[in-house]
Design a protein around this nucleic acid. Sequence first.
DNA 1: TTATTAAGATGATAATTGTCATGTTATATT
DNA 2: AATATAACATGACAATTATCATCTTAATAA
Lengths: 227, 227
Amino acid sequence: MNKCDQCIVRQLSSLKALNKEEVIKLASSKTTYKIKKGEAIFEEGEVTNGVFCVKDGVGKLSKLSANGKDQIVKLVKSGELLGQRSMISNEPANLTAKAIADMEVCFIPKTEIINFFNTNNQFSLNMMQSVCEDLKESENEKIALVQKTVKQRLAETLLHLHDAFGEDTDKTLKVQLTREELAGIIGTATESCIRLLSDFNKLGLIELVGKKILLKDVRALKKLADN
Amino acid sequence: MNKCDQCIVRQLSSLKALNKEEVIKLASSKTTYKIKKGEAIFEEGEVTNGVFCVKDGVGKLSKLSANGKDQIVKLVKSGELLGQRSMISNEPANLTAKAIADMEVCFIPKTEIINFFNTNNQFSLNMMQSVCEDLKESENEKIALVQKTVKQRLAETLLHLHDAFGEDTDKTLKVQLTREELAGIIGTATESCIRLLSDFNKLGLIELVGKKILLKDVRALKKLADN
DNA sequence: TTATTAAGATGATAATTGTCATGTTATATT
DNA sequence: AATATAACATGACAATTATCATCTTAATAA
């Protein structure tokens, strides 16, 4: 029994199309890394030459602006692949990937992936669908950025974080984002984000448990996000 | 000699990976349509079950918001494919596709494309790269929406339209967009867009020739867009 | 041609959001 | 424990951008 076979990434990502033999090849070519919170997996402009499997933890894909603000494009969690686009496009990374919570990732070299492309159509199709999914999300977020107010986007993002990452035992959001990071996701100033969280708190939509956030009135948040 | 072989889409898109036999199959399965300016090729929510080759004209992919504003996500021109994402994802269209200038498009049924996927690896890879290119653009535009002002985005968009579509004989931009559509691309109110065009005109950055736009000071526009 | 509608333009004003300043509370380091 | 630093919070204010109203000009239909 090799490790990759039981891995969550193997179960959830495009890799699920691989057969036993392929998984064995995969296991022998991979390299495992541990990345501490705050550390980078790869930076914008770097040539990665492969993809990363996220075994555990949470990461962010972001881009630093001229004025020092970090716009977060996507959060990745365990079970997902990282760096697919750059690898397929044969380009250096367009975004920086950093750990938001301690991560364990495996690196799979490009040569291996290309092999799978050539011999396993379902794998190709899966990866294509995964990129398509990212594209759809990105387009919809782009539209939301223009058509919704910061308040609406905050409500929407809180709901999305709840959906995607779930709750801790104390019912607060499981992903631990700083206010600055949350602002980076919704595309606003940190102060605006903090202010709106305060407002939401006063309105009873959420509760601020220290730095953590508890969604108290999901229905009202949904209404706010949509309207 | 069949028509598809000489078609611009065959030369520029993923279809360039097809061999002679495949092109013959393609030609026999396609359907050609003419779409007048303003008409839709497909609408949000529609199941398209194939892709469209843009032989001629210009189209826009957009989404209507609750308040009646039309956010334009992408412009497509001759040589490009349309509807790849929905087809690959097996989903109804996420966006509406409409003609901005009279178009000629060919519809290729999904079954045909899937066949090519299964028998032609280069074709698969090309299409994957095309989606990846869209994803990169979408992410970068998302970042620009947040990190740049409306003024900067307008400058950037004018330059991009110049790059992508070129000039008419009178040196004005070849794509004929209404101010409303231009506003829909940069994500702002029509009035704001008109106002800024006026400002740019007064500053000598552009010249307004009737409804058409002539870029007078490309260097200054670039500086404005980047800074 | 004339009437009608759409597109473009501009002013006045309000709303949203960003920026700067400052204070407080946590967290980490010595 | 004391100090330093980072994260959170809030007020005051300015800048950007949206909205509404009105007007002109161009395109289209009758």
